[in-house]
Design a protein around this nucleic acid. Structure first.
Length: 110
DNA sequence: CCTGTGACATAAG
DNA sequence: CCTTATGCCACAG
């Protein structure tokens, strides 16, 4: 293997995001760390920004480490991200996920 | 090639 | 609680 042994960073992010089960969420840092770049969480966010180019990317399940819906403005409307999360049984108040640690899903420790 | 930008994380004051 | 600053890397222009 020479060229495809290492997938693009974006692809890796999408792979992980698609693995997030319903009713669960994860953080950019957790994904970055899973990919071996704990200090490159921004790349995850950047990948999510381009997630609209992909399908089946539940970006609403990815929030920052505080459980804050920092990227909700990238969804249509003003509360679509929250609606999607609540639709999966996640409670969101003031753009923040309640019981974040309870619904948190670690790609390295499912 | 260089610069700006970004849905983050962490540290410091 | 707040704002700054730094690191990290990919991409657009």
């Amino acid at each position: 293997m020479s060229q495809s042994d290492k997938l693009n960073f974006f692809e890796q992010v999408y792979q992980v995001v698609q693995t997030i089960p319903e009713g669960r969420v994860t953080s950019y840092g957790a994904i970055a760390r899973f990919l071996g770049a704990p200090q490159s969480a921004r790349m995850v966010g950047w990948a999510m920004n381009a997630s609209h180019l992909r399908e089946d990317i539940p970006a609403h399940r990815v929030v920052n480490r505080l459980g804050l819906l920092t990227g909700k403005h990238h969804f249509e409307g003003t509360n679509l991200m929250q609606q999607l999360l609540e639709n999966e049984g996640i409670t969101v108040v003031d753009n923040q996920i309640l019981n974040f640690e309870t619904v948190f899903w670690d790609p390295q420790n499912p």
